[in-house]
Amino acid sequence: MDWQKIEQLIDKYFEGTTSLEEEMVLKNYFSQENVADELKQFQPLFSYLQLAKEETAPNKTVLKSKKPFKKWISIAAVFILIASLTTIWNLKATDSQDLGTFDDPEIAYAETLKALELLASNVNYGMESVNYINEYEYSKNLIFKN
């Protein structure tokens, strides 16, 4: 192709009015050996533009295959765990604290007496069993006769 025609294309190129095909013609022209001296100055530009397209991304694209719902599952799990722990704890706390109360002091007194009597009778019952220990003492004395 004669260089006047190429020169016209170059002018068009710098005006930004060349088509992709015309730009291809220019690139091909400059990639061959015999470029007209008048146009030599543009050779590096077009060679660079062609060369720059050859650069490739380093092949290390590793995709983290994280699916968004997995995150939600773990968040939900933690939430449920915390919720259940707090309810269990609250249940235990109310069990031991809510003992009821009496408004009338006389009934309260009677109830206290009742409770103390219950305690006392249980303690006595315990004491009865402890009395058997004396039997050991007695037999020990029989055997060792001190």
């Binding site: 720059a52 397209k53 650069e55 490739t56 991304a57 380093p58 290390k60 694209t61």
Partner: peptide, 24 residues
């Protein structure tokens, strides 16, 4: 078009590493 993305990133960020990170 992965390479095309990389080349655009490199044109803007200049550094190869940064362009790689950006593509990623």
């Amino acid at each position: 078009f992965k390479d095309k993305m990389f080349r655009l990133a490199k044109r803007l960020l200049v550094s190869t590493e940064e362009a790689e990170d950006a593509t990623q």
